[in-house]
């Protein structure tokens, strides 16, 4: 378990608070919520899971800006006011890119259902990611790619590049088409801003 949803910016854009030390028995390591990690968010037990991708990370520190003198040094605060330290959290942005039905049927694109506040966010294992991207005929699909690019974020192309890189590992027989898409995105991300055409 990575954390829980603490906020949403839109129907598909959520903010997840990563479990900190002491909140759960085994808090996630930074590699678990890395940029481009696929996560699942249960909507309800009967229906389905929302599938999202971590597209941003924000470190929240309430102490930032408090430059005045402290009554207690941080080492004492850990002993006397542990709650205060717990307010330093890591937030990750999640963009929802599809759904996975209980029977394993994936749907790419904007899901009709929204997640609930405090919904748990879990990292998807490789098999689940593979299942989410596999078409009925066994080929790979990333139908949410236009959705990611439409985010308008400067990181969107890099996010998609990262996802495609992961998919090339998960689908070693499908690298030809993925390679064409990766090259196109790499060109747009790397050469396009420098004035490269098309």
């Amino acid at each position: 378990m990575l954390g829980k949803l603490s906020k949403s910016n839109s129907h598909t854009d959520y903010v997840c608070q990563i479990h900190g030390p002491g909140e759960v028995a085994a808090p996630p390591s930074p590699a678990d919520y890395a940029f481009g990690t696929f996560v699942r968010i249960p909507v309800d037990a009967e229906h389905t899971d929302l599938i999202g991708i971590i597209y941003d990370t924000v470190l929240l520190n309430p102490e930032l800006g408090n430059l005045g003198p402290r009554l207690s040094p941080p080492s004492d605060l850990a002993f006397f006011s542990p709650d205060y330290l717990a307010e330093k959290v890591t937030l990750v942005g999640i963009t929802v890119v599809g759904m996975l039905a209980p029977d394993g049927t994936p749907t790419h694109g904007v899901p009709p259902l929204a997640a609930q506040i405090d919904a748990p966010v879990a990292r998807m294992e490789d098999d689940a990611v593979r299942a989410f991207h596999r078409t009925p005929v066994g080929s790979v699909q990333a139908g949410y790619a236009p959705l990611l690019l439409a985010l308008g974020s400067p990181l969107a192309r890099y996010l998609l590049l990262r996802v495609i890189g992961d998919l090339e590992i998960l689908f070693p027989t499908q690298t030809a088409a993925l390679g064409v898409l990766r090259n196109e995105l790499a060109w747009q991300a790397a050469i396009g801003p420098l004035g490269g055409g098309l």
Binding site: H108, S139, Q141, A142, P146, A177, L181
Partner: peptide, 8 residues
């Protein structure tokens, strides 16, 4: 067309 299918 395969690449187009890949992106949905």
């Amino acid at each position: 067309e395969d690449v187009a299918a890949l992106v949905g």
